[in-house]
């Protein structure tokens, strides 16, 4: 009898022992940093090995939509798991600066002053909202030139966009339209929205356009650029009625488990080498004044931009997303 009780207890112990060791695995490693990121997997795959080689620190990346990143960090507030939030929309960070730890990185003086807009977070790269169009499906004349063009009924069901409640860049597109058209903003946006095919991630948008699943997409310049660079049948369009050029952010999470490694990561991410890599390979715009812009992309002066107020867009996010959800439900998307 005793032996039986013993053996079952042993079984119990062993089960939870193994569960626990499996769980503890990885935590034993000396130098590591946990990153929550909305970067595309492709960029993560390209950059993480470089970082690990340069610093000898092991990076663990959790890839999520930018809203999920914030939600997760918020949920873990009591017991932070994440060290650095890497590349999510600035307004998301702005709205949650209480979760973040201020940090002044190395070479802060090299960062272009126009990008120093955040509180508690740092600019990472410059991002421009663009349209991307399939050159096989649309002639030059058929391509949309402005946000209002997108509401043309001929585009019904062939515009690909991400969900504004999941994707930070999609939210920024919404805010951009509201910013440009002010009072008429929601009317314009609704007429655009009814033509949309929604997806979970804005990274997939240029893929659908490239594959001809959609004729037009709304996405980030760098996402679209990689398809252009890859030789796909796509063209980048900068809206004539204006667009947003704003930094996406990188930030230190308050009370993250590996703060030294976290700072090392941020320094590395903002270094001239990393920035030029992002520019050359990924089509991003640099935030450093000492890193030149990619020759394939137009200079900022050639693009019509409207000033983007992070505090406004961050502060209104809850209301805007609620309204957006209502519209989506109304339109049955």
């Amino acid at each position: 009898m005793k032996r039986m009780i013993f053996s079952v207890l042993l079984l119990l112990l062993v089960s939870f022992g193994v569960f626990a060791t499996a769980a503890a695995e990885g935590e034993a490693e000396a130098q590591s940093v946990v990153l929550y990121s909305a970067h595309t997997q492709e960029i993560i795959d390209a950059l993480v090995p470089q970082f690990e080689a340069a610093t000898g620190i092991k990076a663990e990346v959790v890839k999520m939509g930018s809203s999920d990143v914030i939600a997760r960090v918020k949920a873990e507030q009591g017991n932070p798991q994440c060290d650095v939030i890497w590349s999510i929309g600035g307004e998301q960070l702005e709205a949650n600066s209480d979760l973040l730890q201020t940090y002044e990185p190395k070479d802060w003086d090299k960062v272009d002053d126009v990008f120093k807009v955040g509180h508690g977070w740092l600019p990472y790269t410059g991002i421009v909202m663009v349209f991307v169009a399939n050159t096989d499906m649309l002639t030059e004349a058929q391509m949309p030139k402005s946000w209002t063009d997108l509401s043309n009924s001929g585009y019904k069901g062939i515009i690909s966009s991400a969900r504004a409640d999941k994707s930070g860049s999609s939210y920024m597109q919404l805010a951009t339209v509201l910013n440009i058209y002010q009072d008429k903003g929601w009317d314009v946006y609704k007429s655009i929205l009814q033509n949309f095919v929604l997806s979970g991630s804005s990274s997939a948008v240029p893929r659908f356009v490239n594959d001809g699943e959609a004729a037009v997409g709304i996405t980030l310049e760098d996402n679209a650029y990689r398809y252009v660079a890859g030789g796909g049948p796509v063209k980048i369009i900068y809206p004539e009625d204006g667009t947003t050029a704003a930094p996406d952010g990188i930030a230190l999470v308050k009370n993250g488990p590996n703060s030294a490694a976290a700072k090392a990561f941020i320094d590395w991410a903002l270094s001239a080498e990393t920035q030029s890599f992002l520019v050359q390979e990924m089509g991003r715009r640099p935030i450093r004044s000492d890193v030149p812009i990619s020759p394939d992309l137009p200079a900022m002066s050639e693009i019509k931009t409207v000033p983007y107020d992070f505090a406004w867009s961050a502060g209104s996010k809850k209301d805007f997303v609620a309204k957006w959800t209502e519209l989506v439900q109304e339109l049955g998307l």
Binding site: K63, S201, V205, P206
Partner: peptide, 23 residues
């Protein structure tokens, strides 16, 4: 899942979601 507990199906799914069908 979190980053360090990412599994193959999750990784594949995320790639598909990003439109990275090759990988």
């Amino acid at each position: 899942y979190v980053g360090k507990t990412m599994t193959m199906p999750v990784r594949i799914y995320l790639s598909v979601l990003d439109g990275l069908f090759g990988t």
